[in-house]
Write a protein that binds this DNA or RNA. Structure first.
Length: 882
DNA sequence: GCCTCCCGCCAGAAT
DNA sequence: ATTCTGGCGGGAGGC
């Protein structure tokens, strides 16, 4: 009981303080605070439920007060709960309840004031609060539901009043469309992951029931699947493409009839079945239909009007979710003016996903901007979309008008269509011309760069290389993005441009960008600071730069290859053929060595690697390719897709009148699709590639890297996924006999011969060996031994097989251990090595006479060596990837 | 006044 | 026994 007293005391104080504080702080009200408090509450709620103590219940009430809830209901709950207790406890409880009630009244009044102020100051944020409260209340209501239904009604009325009068409540905010949009934006860029219903209800701030609706419909699209109580699984957004193509390819002979007639077979998940049926109707029956039509089609012939009504209601639900996905859009029939829904399909999906991703991107960037601007924009957007009645009215009337214009006069529509197509074609032509010119320039630049790179391996060349590369990328990206120009700040830095390169999966992009920026900065700094010392270290630098250059060149070649391929694809084959030879030569410059090694490894020890790769990664691999294939297929074949549908429809249309606008709708959509083909392809790629959740695990596992890179390469060829690999193999065959100056070629050549490891090692590290020998021959031996150990080259010396196996083990172990981040870090380590070398030289100069200097030299030298060996290891992995 | 469709009751499934 | 799911229809909001 003493505890109770304590609790009530603390409750009084804390609640008052809290409320007062909040009143003061009102104007600076922070949304995040509310979210945090809500989170803390919800977590606490769970704990208290587990504990089931009275104390916990009291604290629960306390928390509710702090969260400005209507706690009358809760108090009554507690009354009922206390009924089971002894009399003494009852009295105590009642006394506490009285206190609480009075406090509650005060709090409610305060909160009312606060809400009114919020309403004036931060409308959008108030809506957020109301959402959370409603979510909470509904949850609470669910819990209470079984006990007292009459009170529920009261509370429901209370909340209604709250919603409509006190808060600036808007019905549309809670629509299934908005909800499902929110829901999808939460998970759109995530790969397979588990969903917890409680989490989602909290995040979306809605009652559970609505989540079920959304999930059921998404289940029909196979975006989510139920795994158990309260647990669902997100299957990844690309799944929807597979589903739709799957439904489209399925013949609708007997199965459909069954479904259409036997619809009341299962009580369970009728919404899901209805959703599937609706989808199939769009795919196989008509592309534009009224919900009533659909309902009748999906029902048996004799059905009550009543039943039809409910079915229509459900179809509205489904249609809203489909609308939010962009699968369908609302139009109206020409003749009857009846509202109807038109199938958009994959095009709409693409644009939806693209939009969401872009909004997310912008959102992330906006977080760095001033908060004022955010608030303003939020307010404006919210007012535009929801709260401001005039604006929303305007918006809707516009929508209606536009749709009417589209649907009323077919001639107008066709003219629009034609002009649109012509404009698109002109645009494309111009773009292609520009692209060609720029590609030529770019290739010249690249050739020049590579010549210079081969001759003079300077740090400045690296930066020039990268920046020029990125500039070319910038141009290409700009042109490609002309349709949907990024509104962002003029991203002048070449590295931010690289981030626009959406061919890579996003974690890799981020790593590349971050680390490359660091690399360039470091290189520049080093250039400025150490120009004099560079002469002394030129040879070392050459070695290091060779490595760095190789990495950069690989990157460059991959990217340029991709860009060229992607942009060239549709256009003149003649020039692209010329370009291809050039590109091949470009490709030959560096990756050939990589590929040589790669090929050897792959051919000789395929089994070993395969064993090491887990079956899961294999599955992922396959599914990824599948997904890619299916997406490409679906986008490229969209024309056929719709024409096939047309044919079907022509047959079916005989049964059903209303055919006037169907052809038009379909014609328009198909034309639209074909004209948008290229950008859509890009979009789908961008959507499908970055499947990983970058927030939780920034560094992907090596197989993923490999996968996504190969996927990138394969995506550059529309024809064949294996095309690039064959090209690579050809390149390898063509250039097997060539000799290259950089260490890797030496290494590979030596690998082919039967030279021993020491020679290889010497050839790689020759320069530093000399220095080390000057310093101390014994220490050098130690170092070398160390590095051998480190390199896992220790053991039998003279057998080539052992060499290969160890190399392989190393590389394969690297594959499982070293992620892309570390690969990029090698470049930084290279720079670090430079610094180390400088320090070493300084040490040598200043402490020439010291006897103990060996020890002092030994450590940095050791570190240097270890780093270098690690770098080489990592680079081998990099080679593997490229 | 019709179209939309949110809301929440409550039955039945799941645990 | 309790919680989770989801069918279902009233009736409110929007136009």
């Amino acid at each position: 009981m003493a505890q109770y007293q304590k609790n009530t005391d603390s409750f009084d104080v804390s609640s008052e303080q809290d409320s007062l504080d909040n009143i003061v702080v009102e104007d600076d009200y922070n949304q995040q605070d509310d979210i945090d408090s809500f989170k803390s509450f919800s977590s606490f709620d769970v704990e208290s439920e587990e504990q089931g103590d009275e104390e916990a219940q009291v604290q629960e009430g306390e928390e509710e007060n702090q969260n400005y809830q209507e706690s009358n209901q809760d108090i009554q709950d507690k009354d009922s709960m206390v009924d089971d207790e002894t009399n003494f406890e009852e009295e105590q409880q009642q006394a506490q309840d009285m206190i609480k009630k009075t406090d509650q009244i005060i709090l409610n009044k305060i909160n009312l004031k606060k809400r009114n102020i919020f309403q004036l100051v931060h409308r959008s944020q108030v809506s957020m609060i109301s959402e959370k409260q409603n979510g909470y209340l509904s949850k609470k209501k669910n819990n209470v539901n079984s006990n007292k239904s009459a009170q529920n009604g009261q509370q429901a009325q209370g909340t209604q009043i709250l919603k409509r009068e006190i808060l600036n409540y808007s019905r549309r905010e809670k629509s299934l469309e908005e909800l499902s949009k929110k829901f999808l934006s939460l998970f759109l860029d995530k790969e397979e992951s588990m969903l917890s219903l409680d989490k989602i209800t909290n995040q979306l701030g809605v009652e559970r029931r609505r989540i079920y609706d959304i999930i059921n419909i998404l289940e029909s699209l196979k975006l989510v699947s139920r795994k158990g109580k309260n647990n669902y699984k997100w299957n990844g957004f690309q799944k929807i493409y597979e589903t739709i193509t799957q439904f489209d390819q399925k013949s609708l002979t007997k199965k459909e009839e069954q479904e259409l007639t036997q619809e009341p077979q299962k009580r369970e998940k009728s919404l899901e079945m209805l959703s599937i049926g609706f989808l199939k109707l769009f795919l196989h029956w008509k592309s534009t239909m009224t919900l009533e039509e659909a309902a009748r089609k999906l029902s048996s012939k004799q059905i009550d009007d009543h039943k039809i009504k409910t079915k229509i209601r459900r179809l509205y639900d489904i249609a809203n979710v489909f609308k939010s996905l962009g699968l369908i859009k609302k139009t109206s029939l020409i003749e009857t003016k009846k509202p109807a829904f038109e199938w958009i399909g994959i095009v709409g999906l693409d644009s939806f996903a693209y939009k969401i991703m872009r909004e997310k991107k912008n959102g992330e960037e906006e977080q760095n901007c001033d908060e004022d601007s955010i608030n303003q924009s939020q307010q404006i957007s919210q007012q535009n979309s929801f709260t401001e009645p005039k604006l929303s009215k305007k918006r809707f009337s516009n929508d209606k008008n536009s749709s009417k214009i589209d649907s009323t006069t077919g001639q107008q529509k066709q003219q629009l269509k034609k002009s649109f197509i012509i404009q698109q074609q002109l645009k494309e032509q111009r773009e292609k011309e520009r692209l060609q010119i720029e590609q030529n320039q770019k290739q010249q630049q690249a050739n020049l760069q590579q010549n210079t790179l081969n001759n003079n391996l300077d740090n400045s060349n690296i930066t020039q290389n990268v920046s020029q590369l990125l500039q070319t990328i910038q141009k290409n990206m700009k042109i490609q993005n002309q349709e949907t120009p990024l509104q962002n700040n003029s991203s002048n830095t070449p590295l931010s441009l690289l981030s626009q390169l959406q061919i890579l999966s996003r974690p890799i992009q981020q790593n590349l960008v971050n680390n490359l920026s660091n690399l360039i900065n470091n290189i520049n700094n080093n250039n400025q600071n150490n120009l004099i010392q560079q002469e002394e270290q030129q040879q070392n630098n050459n070695n290091n730069n060779l490595i760095g250059n190789l990495m950069l060149k690989c990157l460059q070649n991959v990217i340029t290859n991709f860009v060229n391929k992607n942009t060239n694809n549709t256009q003149n084959r003649q020039k692209s053929d010329e370009n291809q030879t050039n590109q091949q030569q470009i490709l030959l410059e560096s990756p050939q060595k990589v590929l040589k090694i790669n090929n050897q490894i792959n051919n000789q020890n395929n089994s070993l690697i395969q064993n090491q790769m887990s079956s899961n990664t294999k599955m992922n691999n396959n599914s990824n390719y599948k997904c890619l294939q299916s997406s490409q297929k679906s986008t490229t074949n969209l024309g056929d897709f719709t024409t096939a549908k047309k044919q079907k429809q022509i047959v079916n249309d005989e049964n059903i009148p209303l055919s006037g606008e169907k052809g038009l709708h379909q014609g328009f959509s198909s034309q639209n699709a074909s004209s948008l083909k290229t950008p859509i392809l890009k979009r789908t790629l961008t959507i499908i590639q970055p499947k990983l959740d970058e927030t939780e695990d920034i560094t992907p596992t090596p197989p993923t890297c490999k996968r996504s890179f190969s996927a990138c390469l394969s995506s550059s060829n529309n024809n064949n996924i294996n095309n690039t690999s064959t090209i690579f193999q050809n390149l390898i065959q063509q250039n097997q006999n060539q000799i290259y100056l950089n260490p890797f070629s030496d290494k590979t050549n030596l690998n082919n011969n039967n030279n021993n490891k020491q020679q290889i090692f010497n050839s790689i590290l020759g320069v530093q060996q000399q220095q080390q020998q000057q310093a101390s021959s014994s220490s050098f031996k130690k170092i070398r031994k160390l590095t051998y150990e480190n390199n896992s080259l220790q053991g039998s010396d003279n057998k080539q097989n052992d060499m290969d196996s160890t190399e392989l083990k190393k590389s394969s172990s690297c594959e499982s251990q070293i992620n892309f981040n570390t690969l990029i870090q090698t470049s930084q380590q290279l720079l670090k090595n430079q610094n180390l070398q400088q320090n070493l030289n300084n040490l040598q100069q200043t402490q020439n006479n010291g006897i103990n200097q060996n020890n002092q030299l030994f450590n940095p030298l050791k570190e240097l060596k270890i780093n270098q060996i690690n770098n080489i290891q990592n680079i081998r992995v990099l080679e593997h990837y490229f």
